[in-house]
Design a protein around this nucleic acid. Structure first.
Lengths: 332, 332
DNA sequence: ATGAAAGCGCTAACAG
DNA sequence: CTGTTAGCGCTTTCAT
C-alpha cells in the first residue's frame, strides 16, 4: 500500500497538518520540522494523492483540451505545444477528440468538466453549433478558444490573424507576377475558413484584381486535388493558387503535377499553417506559418490569469501575427 | 454550486446510500425509488464528482498514455485510435509526451500514476533506459507497451510484426527486379529500429543477396536526405532503398530527386508505417502499413482483461501482421 | 431494500 | 509555529 500523509507525519513525529504544510511548501513550519517531514516523505517514497487534494482543495493540476482531430498534424503539433507548456508547471493534459462533431464535442467537454479540470482549451469545430457548449464550459471554468472560435461569444481566444496571413500570401504571389489568382478554401463552417476567405477577398480587392475567384470545399487533400482539376481546365488559366491550408495545397500540388503543370513556373501555389508536411512536398510549399508555441503559451497564460482572479477577468482576444515562409512552390 | 448526491437524495426522499445505489445502477433498489432518484438527478442536473468516487472507490475511468512525440504523425494517429477506443466506454485519456527522453518519460509516468490512472499505455522510447520505469509502472497498474517495447521485460505488449513487415518490403522490390537493395534505418535505440534492421538482414539473407547493406541514422527526414546523397555516390549504385520508416523514406525521395534520379525507374523506395504523409509524396510512397486501430483495440482489450482479474494475468505479447501498400515509389 | 455511519487522503479553519 | 477537528462527495459495510 502506498504511504499516506499520516505515515509521513507519524514517521516525522509531527501532526498531519504540519506534514501537509511542509509538503505544500507554504511557510509556517519550523525549518527543523520541515526537514524531518521531507526526509520522512523521501524515505517512505511518499506520493501525494492528487485526487484527495483536489477533492478537498479546488485544483486538479489538470487542464482539458478538445480538438477536432488529434490525428491531424496541425492539431497534433498544437497539442504538443500545449502539453509542453503545461509540463513546465507539472500539470497534465486531459485530451479529447471531437471528430468535428458538435455533439461529440459537447459530450467531451462534459466529460472533462466531470473530471474537474482546472481549465479548458477548446478548438470549437463549428462556428455556430459549438457555441452553447463553449459558453456553458466558460461559465464553469476558465476557458480559452484556440485556433478556432465560435461566433458571437465573448470568451477569450487566441488565434492567428488569418486575414493578415492571407494578405501575406496574396502579396507574395502578386509580387512575383501573378495577376490571376484563385483561392481554394473550405466552406466557412469554422472561423478560420471564414476569416481566410474574407482575407483573400480583401487582399485581392486591394490590388483591384477583379471579382475574387474562389473555390470552396473542405480542408482536405482530396478537395485540393479535385480543385486542381477544375483549375487547369479554366480559360484563362489562373497563375496562382492560394490555398486555405496546407492539406489543400498538397492536394493541389498533386493534382497540378498529374495534369502536367509546372509549379512554380506555370502556376504558383501557397498553403497555410506550415504543418510538418509543407517542407517535405515536391516542390516544397510556400506557406503561412502559425507560431504554435506562441499560441500555446498565450493560451496557457490567459488561463492562468483567469484562474488567479476570483472575479472573471474581461475576456481577451489575442490575434497572433503569422509570417510567410517562402519555399519552392512560389517563384524566387 | 453543483448539486451533490445529498441534494439528489433529499429531493428523492431517500438516503444518500440509496441514491448512490440507484445511480450506480447496481441492483438492490426498489424500482419505484430508483425512478425517483433518477428523476431528481435529472431535475437537478446532477453530475457525479468522479474525483470523489475515485477517492472512495478505486477507478478513475482514466487511462494514461505516454508517447515519445505527440506531434509525430505516427504517434498522433495512434493516440487518436486509442482515444477513440476509450471514448466508446466513457473513459478519458491523460496524455503525456516523453520527448524521447527516458528521464522525462519516467517523470511523466509518475505524474500519471499520481493522478491515479486506471491503467497505462506506454510507448517506451528506449529499449534499455525505459526499462525500469516501465517495470515500476507495471507493478502498480495494468500496463501495456504499444508499438515499442523494452528489452527483457515480461510485460504485455502490442506491436506490429516488424520482421515480417520488412520481409514484405524486400520481397516487393526484389519481385520487381531489385537485386542490390540498401537499408536506411535508425540506430537500434528503440525496439522497432532493432527489429526492422534484423528483419532486413533476414529478408535479404533469404535471397542470398550477399552482405546486407545498411545505413543507420535516426528516424528523420534529414537523415533520409543525407543517406540519399551517400547512396547516389555508390558504385555500383543500389537499385532499391528500403527505409526504416516513412520519414526517412520521404527524405530519401527528396534527396534522390535533388540528385536527378528517377523513382521508381532508376531506384525503388519503400517506407514503413503508412503515415498520412505516405500517400501525399511525389511519387507516392510504397510502404508497410501498421493497422493502428487494431493495435489500439488490442491494447485496450489487454488492459481491460488485466483489470478484470485481481491476480495479474500472464503477460501477453501480441504481434500484429502488417500489410504492404503498393504505391508509386516502386515499380508496378 | 434501506439507512446510518465510517472513512478514502488531504487541506483548511480554528485554537492553542 | 503546531495540533485538533472538520469535512470535500462519494461508496460501502453493517445493521435494520
Amino acid at each position: 500500500m502506498r504511504a499516506t500523509i499520516r505515515d509521513v507525519a507519524a514517521r516525522a513525529g509531527v501532526s498531519v497538518a504540519t506534514a501537509s504544510r511542509a509538503l505544500s511548501s507554504e511557510r509556517g513550519v519550523r525549518p527543523e520540522n520541515r526537514e524531518r517531514v521531507l526526509a520522512a516523505a523521501a524515505a517512505l517514497d511518499y506520493q501525494p494523492n492528487i485526487l484527495a487534494a483536489a477533492l478537498r482543495g479546488r485544483t486538479t493540476y489538470t487542464v482539458g483540451m478538445v480538438v477536432p482531430s488529434i490525428g491531424n498534424p496541425y492539431f497534433a503539433t498544437l497539442v504538443e505545444a500545449v502539453e509542453h507548456q503545461l509540463r513546465d508547471d507539472d500539470r497534465s493534459l486531459l485530451l479529447a477528440n471531437s471528430r468535428y462533431e458538435p455533439q461529440t464535442e459537447r459530450r467531451q467537454i462534459q466529460a472533462l468538466l466531470d473530471r474537474r479540470v482546472d481549465s479548458l482549451i477548446l478548438v470549437p469545430c463549428d462556428r455556430t453549433a459549438s457555441r452553447d457548449a463553449t459558453a456553458d464550459a466558460a461559465a464553469r471554468v476558465p476557458t480559452v478558444q484556440v485556433d478556432l472560435r465560435v461566433d458571437d461569444h465573448a470568451g477569450s481566444s487566441v488565434t492567428v490573424d488569418n486575414e493578415f496571413g492571407l494578405r501575406l500570401a496574396v502579396d507574395h504571389v502578386v509580387g512575383r507576377g501573378a495577376y490571376r489568382p484563385v483561392f481554394v478554401g473550405a466552406e466557412p463552417v469554422d472561423s478560420s475558413a471564414q476569416e481566410r476567405l474574407d482575407g483573400y477577398r480583401q487582399a485581392t480587392g486591394r490590388y483591384g484584381l477583379g471579382e475574387p475567384d474562389v473555390l470552396l470545399g473542405d480542408f482536405s487533400t482530396d478537395w485540393g486535388r479535385a480543385a486542381a482539376c477544375r483549375i487547369v481546365d479554366r480559360d484563362p488559366r489562373p497563375d496562382a493558387v492560394i490555398c486555405g491550408n496546407d492539406m489543400i495545397a498538397l492536394g493541389v500540388l498533386d493534382g497540378l503535377a498529374a495534369a502536367g503543370m509546372r509549379v512554380p513556373e506555370d502556376i504558383q501555389v501557397t498553403g497555410f499553417d506550415d504543418t510538418p508536411y509543407a517542407a517535405l512536398s515536391r516542390p516544397s510549399l510556400t506557406t503561412v506559418r502559425q507560431p504554435q508555441d506562441e499560441i500555446a503559451a498565450q493560451a496557457v497564460r490567459l488561463l492562468d490569469a483567469a484562474a488567479a482572479r476570483s472575479d472573471s477577468p474581461p475576456p481577451q482576444r489575442i490575434a497572433i501575427t503569422p509570417v510567410l515562409v517562402a519555399r519552392g512552390s512560389t517563384l524566387p
